[in-house]
Design a protein around this nucleic acid. Structure first.
Length: 478
RNA sequence: UCCUGAAUAGCUCAGCCGGUUAGAGCAUCUGACUGUUAAUCAGAGGGUCGCUGGUUCGAGUCCAGCUUCAGGAGCCA
């Protein structure tokens, strides 16, 4: 038996009249004669031609959708139209049967909702094969980008003791017997008896620890899972998601924005260069999906065009104050089409406002900066106007906020004052404040939501479809 | 969590104003055909109409509650 070759490599080589072994799963078996075999290396199947008249009927019956096969045969030019080459099978081994009465995937279109219920099998579809190969590339490209720039990949803890960051509801971490939780004399939960001797939770952000690393290593990034116990039921939120959080010493907000924009363009280009076929497939998929929609809801650009456009154009940079002025003067605001009318300075922007700026007004990615301090986190550097902080959010069409970042407040008094105002316990964050006591310097960083990036690059609409096993309220299956 | 909508065969869906035995396409099975491209043709099997309760002579259909899902909003990445 010849050495196994991956289907991607086989289809890319132009050799014929050689013997090869391929292993994979049956997508369809047509006419008792043609096996479409897929091994996940590419969306394209290889067509295996079976000499059914000289093959054991019992074996033929076991070639069913989903079955795992090992096939050895000769590569020949295909007589049919759909493909360049066929494999004329000499030897077919069934590695794993797949009962057609029970196997839920059929050679037909399935709804994304249905596939979400069988997430353990959805990898075997064209759409999800493409998505997860693209996800893999993006993940690799992120490391590549940072490594080429001398950043240190820092593993910040998944379990943390402080809930001081205010980045949302947390999941508790404990090894208490939940039916018998130790209590103090005053009937409060006695965390001293818990595993860590204090209340702990899953991290909502590695930023604060990341800053500690940057204050010695200069440039670091984290890339790991993050957890939010928010009861969010949207196409853009997960309870467990992956986030990239770079943190750079001696960066100001402009350096920060340059890095973020550079990173996004780099990884999108990497995916376009290395996953062309998958992105072309996803572009087609999106086009088919949009055919169902009314004309005015369809996007002007195809997925491929949208990604290329993103590479070819600078992101628009403007301040929160400028954005408010644009929104106040906008047609939907004047005609009262917004559900929340923009009247004054100081309130947070609603999704509809962000979408207007990105999708209607500028029609390209937008970086908003210098938000009112009241609507942003305590650690962001205060501007001299006393009203705004050096924050930046990158807004993408169809996704909304994909990056949130800021220049950090490095001045101890200013930081402590802000923590007092916002009720952040300084004693719990003594270690964070130490970086402002010893060798403080200007620095900045941001958080990039990885799944939101994958959403954008794959053109998918629901974040639950771009992570292998999504965790969200009322669902932790698989 | 809030708003809107949905839940009928393995999948996608139809089922009108409450009325006999709940339908279609695809999938599956059986047979035919054999260079197909989600093969084709003929036939067959397949249902606790999401759950609980209510109204009614009678409920897939009307009402209430619950569960889950989808889309939008909030929280955010």
């Amino acid at each position: 038996m010849s050495k196994r070759i991956k289907i991607k490599a086989l289809l890319e080589s132009n050799e014929t009249n050689i013997d090869v072994t391929v292993k994979g799963w049956v997508r369809t078996f047509r006419n008792n004669q043609f096996i479409a075999l897929n091994d996940g290396s590419t969306n394209n199947n290889v067509q295996v031609v079976v000499d059914f008249e000289n093959t054991d009927a019992a074996l033929l019956k076991r070639i069913t959708t989903g079955a795992a096969l090992s096939i050895t045969g000769t590569v020949v030019e295909s007589i049919g139209k759909g493909q360049k080459i066929d494999i004329k099978a000499k030897e077919i081994e069934i590695l794993g049967d797949s009962d057609p009465e029970k196997y839920p995937l059929q050679p037909k279109k399935h709804s994304l909702e249905f596939l979400r219920e069988i997430a353990h099998l959805r990898f075997r579809t064209n759409t999800f094969g493409a998505i997860f190969r693209v996800r893999n590339s993006l993940s690799f490209a992120i490391h590549k980008f940072f490594q080429e720039r001398g950043f240190v990949y820092l593993h910040t803890p998944v379990i943390t003791a402080s809930d001081a960051e205010g980045a949302g509801e947390t999941f508790h971490v404990t090894n208490f017997d939940l039916d018998n939780i130790p209590r103090t004399d005053t009937n409060e939960i006695d965390y001293k008896q818990d595993f860590f001797g204090k209340a702990t939770n899953l991290t909502v952000s590695g930023q604060l620890e990341g800053e500690l690393g940057a204050m010695a290593l200069s440039d670091i990034y984290t890339f790991g899972p993050t957890f939010r116990a928010e009861n969010s039921n949207t196409t853009r939120h997960l309870a467990e998601f992956w986030m990239i959080e770079p943190e750079m010493a001696f960066y100001d907000l402009d350096d920060n924005m340059d890095l973020a924009e550079g990173l996004l363009k780099y990884v999108i280009k990497y995916a376009l260069d290395n996953n062309r076929e998958d992105i072309e497939f996803l572009t087609q998929r999106l086009q088919e999906e949009e055919k169902q929609k009314p004309q005015n809801e369809r996007s002007e650009m195809s997925l491929l065009e949208k990604l290329q456009f993103c590479l070819d154009n600078d992101f628009v940079r403007l301040t929160y104050t400028e954005a408010i002025d644009i929104l106040k003067d906008s047609t939907p605001n004047k005609k009262k089409k917004f559900q929340y009318l923009v009247e004054g300075w100081g309130t947070d922007l609603q999704s509809e406002h962000e979408r207007y700026l990105v999708e209607k007004h500028f029609k390209k990615p937008v970086i908003l900066t210098d938000y009112p301090k009241e609507i942003k986190a305590f650690y962001m550097r205060q501007n001299d106007d006393g009203k705004t902080v050096r924050a930046m959010d990158i807004l993408f069409p169809g996704i909304g906020e994909i990056v949130g970042g800021s220049q950090r407040e490095e001045r101890l008094e200013k930081l402590e004052q802000r923590m007092d105002e916002m009720g952040i316990p300084k004693d719990e964050l003594w270690w964070y404040l130490d970086t402002r006591r010893f060798g403080a310097c200007p620095h900045a960083g941001f958080g990039l939501g990885f799944e939101r990036l994958v959403l954008f690059v794959t053109g998918m609409g629901n974040i639950r479809d771009v992570i292998p096993f999504p965790r969200f309220p009322k669902n932790a299956e698989f």
